[in-house]
Computed example of a mutant assay.
Amino acid sequence: MEFGGPRWKGKSFVDIAAQNPMSELVKQLQSSLAQSKARAILSGCISLLDATAELADLLNRTSFGRQIATSEKDEYWFQLSSEETFFMCHSLQSLAVVNESERPLNENKLWDHMRASKAAFPELYKAYSHLRKKNWVVRAGAQYGVDFVAYRHHPALVHSEYAVLVLQDGGENKHSGRLRVWSDLQRCLRVSGSVAKTLLVLYVNENGSDVSSPCCLEQFSVEERMITRWAPEQCRDGSSISENETERIE
Protein backbone atom coordinates (compact mmCIF):
# COMPACT_ATOMS: atom_id res chain seq x y z
CA MET A 1 0.00 0.00 0.00
CA GLU A 2 2.21 2.80 -1.26
CA PHE A 3 1.26 5.87 -3.29
CA GLY A 4 2.14 9.46 -2.45
CA GLY A 5 4.88 8.84 0.08
CA PRO A 6 5.34 10.18 3.61
CA ARG A 7 5.49 13.86 4.58
CA TRP A 8 7.81 14.02 7.57
CA LYS A 9 7.44 16.93 9.98
CA GLY A 10 11.20 17.35 10.43
CA LYS A 11 14.40 16.49 8.56
CA SER A 12 15.66 14.07 11.22
CA PHE A 13 12.30 12.44 11.91
CA VAL A 14 12.71 9.74 9.26
CA ASP A 15 15.86 8.58 11.09
CA ILE A 16 14.04 8.62 14.44
CA ALA A 17 11.29 6.45 12.96
CA ALA A 18 13.83 4.04 11.46
CA GLN A 19 15.54 3.66 14.83
CA ASN A 20 12.20 2.97 16.52
CA PRO A 21 10.20 0.67 14.23
CA MET A 22 6.53 0.55 15.13
CA SER A 23 6.52 -3.26 15.10
CA GLU A 24 9.09 -3.34 17.92
CA LEU A 25 7.28 -0.65 19.91
CA VAL A 26 4.02 -2.61 19.73
CA LYS A 27 5.83 -5.74 20.97
CA GLN A 28 7.11 -3.73 23.93
CA LEU A 29 3.59 -2.45 24.56
CA GLN A 30 2.23 -6.00 24.46
CA SER A 31 4.81 -7.12 27.01
CA SER A 32 4.14 -4.15 29.30
CA LEU A 33 0.38 -4.73 29.16
CA ALA A 34 0.85 -8.36 30.16
CA GLN A 35 3.39 -7.68 32.92
CA SER A 36 1.31 -4.92 34.49
CA LYS A 37 -1.88 -7.02 34.21
CA ALA A 38 -3.55 -4.05 32.58
CA ARG A 39 -7.31 -3.77 32.94
CA ALA A 40 -9.68 -1.49 31.07
CA ILE A 41 -13.14 -0.45 32.27
CA LEU A 42 -15.73 -0.58 29.51
CA SER A 43 -18.14 2.34 29.18
CA GLY A 44 -20.34 2.30 26.10
CA CYS A 45 -18.16 2.08 22.98
CA ILE A 46 -15.00 3.22 24.76
CA SER A 47 -12.91 1.95 27.65
CA LEU A 48 -10.75 3.61 30.29
CA LEU A 49 -7.32 2.20 31.06
CA ASP A 50 -5.40 2.94 34.27
CA ALA A 51 -1.74 2.71 33.21
CA THR A 52 1.62 2.61 34.93
CA ALA A 53 4.24 5.20 33.97
CA GLU A 54 6.03 2.69 31.71
CA LEU A 55 2.81 1.60 30.05
CA ALA A 56 1.70 5.21 29.57
CA ASP A 57 4.97 5.97 27.78
CA LEU A 58 4.51 3.02 25.42
CA LEU A 59 0.85 3.86 24.76
CA ASN A 60 1.94 7.35 23.75
CA ARG A 61 4.85 6.10 21.61
CA THR A 62 2.62 3.63 19.76
CA SER A 63 -0.23 6.16 19.55
CA PHE A 64 -2.87 3.99 21.18
CA GLY A 65 -5.69 5.79 22.94
CA ARG A 66 -5.94 9.36 24.18
CA GLN A 67 -4.37 10.34 27.48
CA ILE A 68 -6.75 12.03 29.89
CA ALA A 69 -5.46 14.91 31.99
CA THR A 70 -5.75 14.31 35.75
CA SER A 71 -4.98 16.37 38.83
CA GLU A 72 -2.83 13.59 40.29
CA LYS A 73 0.82 13.63 39.21
CA ASP A 74 1.37 9.86 39.15
CA GLU A 75 -1.95 8.83 37.58
CA TYR A 76 -2.13 7.91 33.90
CA TRP A 77 -5.55 7.33 32.39
CA PHE A 78 -6.17 6.57 28.72
CA GLN A 79 -9.39 6.52 26.74
CA LEU A 80 -9.42 3.70 24.19
CA SER A 81 -11.75 3.41 21.21
CA SER A 82 -13.75 0.23 20.66
CA GLU A 83 -11.30 -0.90 17.96
CA GLU A 84 -8.26 -0.20 20.14
CA THR A 85 -9.81 -2.01 23.10
CA PHE A 86 -10.62 -5.13 21.11
CA PHE A 87 -7.25 -5.08 19.34
CA MET A 88 -5.38 -5.19 22.66
CA CYS A 89 -7.70 -7.88 23.98
CA HIS A 90 -8.05 -10.06 20.88
CA SER A 91 -4.94 -9.49 18.74
CA LEU A 92 -2.36 -8.66 21.40
CA GLN A 93 -3.97 -10.98 23.96
CA SER A 94 -2.72 -8.73 26.75
CA LEU A 95 -5.61 -6.61 28.04
CA ALA A 96 -8.34 -7.61 30.48
CA VAL A 97 -11.66 -5.80 30.15
CA VAL A 98 -14.33 -5.39 32.82
CA ASN A 99 -17.74 -3.74 32.73
CA GLU A 100 -18.80 -0.84 34.94
CA SER A 101 -19.70 -3.35 37.67
CA GLU A 102 -16.11 -4.65 37.41
CA ARG A 103 -17.24 -8.01 36.08
CA PRO A 104 -14.70 -9.46 33.64
CA LEU A 105 -15.67 -9.81 29.98
CA ASN A 106 -14.15 -12.52 27.83
CA GLU A 107 -13.59 -11.99 24.11
CA ASN A 108 -17.03 -13.30 23.12
CA LYS A 109 -18.87 -11.08 25.59
CA LEU A 110 -16.78 -8.08 24.60
CA TRP A 111 -17.48 -8.82 20.93
CA ASP A 112 -21.23 -9.00 21.62
CA HIS A 113 -21.11 -5.70 23.50
CA MET A 114 -19.22 -3.92 20.70
CA ARG A 115 -21.58 -5.26 18.02
CA ALA A 116 -24.61 -4.14 20.05
CA SER A 117 -23.11 -0.67 20.54
CA LYS A 118 -21.95 -0.23 16.94
CA ALA A 119 -23.63 -2.16 14.11
CA ALA A 120 -20.65 -1.84 11.75
CA PHE A 121 -18.10 -2.88 14.38
CA PRO A 122 -17.08 -6.20 12.70
CA GLU A 123 -16.12 -4.43 9.45
CA LEU A 124 -14.54 -1.45 11.20
CA TYR A 125 -12.48 -3.64 13.49
CA LYS A 126 -11.30 -5.86 10.63
CA ALA A 127 -10.17 -2.79 8.71
CA TYR A 128 -8.48 -1.32 11.80
CA SER A 129 -6.60 -4.53 12.62
CA HIS A 130 -5.71 -5.01 8.94
CA LEU A 131 -3.82 -1.70 8.96
CA ARG A 132 -2.39 -2.05 12.47
CA LYS A 133 -0.95 -5.47 11.66
CA LYS A 134 0.85 -3.82 8.74
CA ASN A 135 2.39 -1.44 11.31
CA TRP A 136 0.37 1.61 10.29
CA VAL A 137 -0.73 3.92 13.09
CA VAL A 138 -4.51 4.21 12.84
CA ARG A 139 -6.47 7.08 14.35
CA ALA A 140 -10.06 8.28 14.15
CA GLY A 141 -10.87 10.14 10.94
CA ALA A 142 -14.20 11.81 11.74
CA GLN A 143 -12.75 15.30 11.31
CA TYR A 144 -12.05 14.45 7.65
CA GLY A 145 -15.37 12.70 7.05
CA VAL A 146 -13.83 9.20 6.98
CA ASP A 147 -13.54 6.28 9.39
CA PHE A 148 -9.79 6.39 10.02
CA VAL A 149 -6.58 8.12 9.04
CA ALA A 150 -3.37 6.11 8.65
CA TYR A 151 0.13 7.28 9.59
CA ARG A 152 3.43 5.68 8.62
CA HIS A 153 4.70 6.26 12.17
CA HIS A 154 3.82 8.40 15.18
CA PRO A 155 1.67 11.46 14.32
CA ALA A 156 4.25 13.71 16.00
CA LEU A 157 6.79 12.66 13.36
CA VAL A 158 4.82 12.39 10.14
CA HIS A 159 1.56 13.56 8.61
CA SER A 160 -1.12 10.97 7.89
CA GLU A 161 -0.98 9.62 4.34
CA TYR A 162 -4.39 8.01 3.94
CA ALA A 163 -7.97 8.95 4.64
CA VAL A 164 -9.64 5.57 5.11
CA LEU A 165 -13.23 4.64 4.33
CA VAL A 166 -14.51 1.20 5.35
CA LEU A 167 -17.25 -0.36 3.25
CA GLN A 168 -18.87 -3.76 3.32
CA ASP A 169 -18.24 -5.82 0.21
CA GLY A 170 -19.85 -8.95 -1.15
CA GLY A 171 -23.48 -7.93 -1.04
CA GLU A 172 -25.74 -5.24 0.31
CA ASN A 173 -23.87 -2.58 2.23
CA LYS A 174 -26.29 -2.66 5.15
CA HIS A 175 -24.35 -0.36 7.47
CA SER A 176 -23.47 2.52 5.15
CA GLY A 177 -24.85 4.28 2.11
CA ARG A 178 -21.57 6.00 1.30
CA LEU A 179 -20.03 6.11 -2.18
CA ARG A 180 -23.24 4.96 -3.82
CA VAL A 181 -23.37 8.00 -6.09
CA TRP A 182 -20.64 9.98 -7.86
CA SER A 183 -21.25 13.08 -5.75
CA ASP A 184 -20.26 11.12 -2.62
CA LEU A 185 -17.00 10.09 -4.23
CA GLN A 186 -16.29 13.62 -5.43
CA ARG A 187 -16.83 15.05 -1.94
CA CYS A 188 -14.52 12.48 -0.35
CA LEU A 189 -11.82 13.08 -2.95
CA ARG A 190 -12.08 16.84 -2.60
CA VAL A 191 -11.81 16.74 1.21
CA SER A 192 -8.95 14.22 1.29
CA GLY A 193 -7.11 16.07 -1.47
CA SER A 194 -7.44 19.41 0.31
CA VAL A 195 -5.56 17.98 3.32
CA ALA A 196 -2.95 16.16 1.19
CA LYS A 197 -4.22 12.64 1.85
CA THR A 198 -4.92 9.77 -0.50
CA LEU A 199 -8.40 8.28 -0.23
CA LEU A 200 -8.10 4.60 0.68
CA VAL A 201 -11.26 2.51 0.54
CA LEU A 202 -11.14 -0.81 2.38
CA TYR A 203 -13.80 -3.24 1.20
CA VAL A 204 -14.43 -5.83 3.91
CA ASN A 205 -16.08 -9.05 2.77
CA GLU A 206 -17.61 -11.28 5.44
CA ASN A 207 -17.60 -14.22 2.99
CA GLY A 208 -20.82 -15.57 4.46
CA SER A 209 -19.37 -16.07 7.93
CA ASP A 210 -21.39 -15.98 11.15
CA VAL A 211 -20.53 -12.68 12.85
CA SER A 212 -21.89 -13.77 16.23
CA SER A 213 -18.36 -14.77 17.29
CA PRO A 214 -14.96 -13.08 16.83
CA CYS A 215 -13.82 -16.31 15.16
CA CYS A 216 -15.48 -14.93 12.02
CA LEU A 217 -12.62 -12.45 11.61
CA GLU A 218 -10.43 -15.23 10.23
CA GLN A 219 -12.92 -15.65 7.38
CA PHE A 220 -13.11 -11.95 6.53
CA SER A 221 -11.11 -10.61 3.59
CA VAL A 222 -10.03 -7.04 2.89
CA GLU A 223 -9.51 -5.42 -0.50
CA GLU A 224 -7.61 -2.13 -0.68
CA ARG A 225 -8.50 0.44 -3.31
CA MET A 226 -6.75 3.81 -3.55
CA ILE A 227 -8.74 6.49 -5.32
CA THR A 228 -7.19 9.69 -6.66
CA ARG A 229 -8.31 12.54 -8.87
CA TRP A 230 -6.99 12.46 -12.43
CA ALA A 231 -5.39 15.72 -13.56
CA PRO A 232 -6.02 15.95 -17.34
CA GLU A 233 -3.17 18.44 -17.82
CA GLN A 234 -0.69 15.73 -16.83
CA CYS A 235 0.41 13.38 -19.60
CA ARG A 236 1.01 9.71 -18.96
CA ASP A 237 4.74 9.92 -19.74
CA GLY A 238 5.28 13.05 -17.63
CA SER A 239 5.89 15.39 -20.59
CA SER A 240 3.55 18.03 -21.93
CA ILE A 241 2.49 18.84 -25.48
CA SER A 242 3.16 22.33 -26.75
CA GLU A 243 0.42 24.49 -28.25
CA ASN A 244 2.00 24.20 -31.73
CA GLU A 245 2.00 20.41 -31.48
CA THR A 246 -1.64 20.52 -30.38
CA GLU A 247 -2.56 22.59 -33.43
CA ARG A 248 -0.84 20.09 -35.74
CA ILE A 249 -2.69 17.18 -34.13
CA GLU A 250 -6.02 18.95 -34.63
Score class of each variant (00 low, 15 high):
84 E>T: 02
10 G>V: 08
133 K>D: 11
43 S>T: 15
243 E>F: 07
218 E>N: 15
126 K>E: 06
129 S>D: 11
213 S>Y: 00
75 E>D: 12
121 F>V: 04
155 P>Y: 04
131 L>Q: 08
56 A>D: 07
188 C>W: 12
89 C>R: 12
72 E>Y: 05
119 A>W: 04
151 Y>G: 05
74 D>A: 03
166 V>P: 12
67 Q>N: 12
83 E>K: 09
149 V>D: 00
48 L>H: 13
134 K>H: 06
93 Q>Y: 08
91 S>H: 05
66 R>I: 15
86 F>L: 04
213 S>V: 13
215 C>P: 04
229 R>I: 09
101 S>A: 12
31 S>P: 07
97 V>P: 03
214 P>N: 03
30 Q>R: 00
43 S>C: 14
36 S>H: 12
6 P>V: 02
135 N>T: 02
39 R>G: 09
250 E>C: 14
220 F>D: 00
61 R>G: 10
184 D>R: 01
19 Q>R: 10
239 S>Q: 09
36 S>D: 12
246 T>H: 01
250 E>M: 15
36 S>Q: 13
117 S>K: 08
97 V>E: 01
123 E>C: 11
214 P>D: 03
162 Y>M: 14
43 S>A: 13
248 R>G: 11
101 S>T: 13
134 K>Y: 07
147 D>C: 11
193 G>L: 01
26 V>I: 10
12 S>M: 14
151 Y>W: 12
130 H>Y: 11
217 L>Q: 03
87 F>G: 01
34 A>P: 01
63 S>A: 15
173 N>L: 01
225 R>H: 03
226 M>S: 10
212 S>G: 07
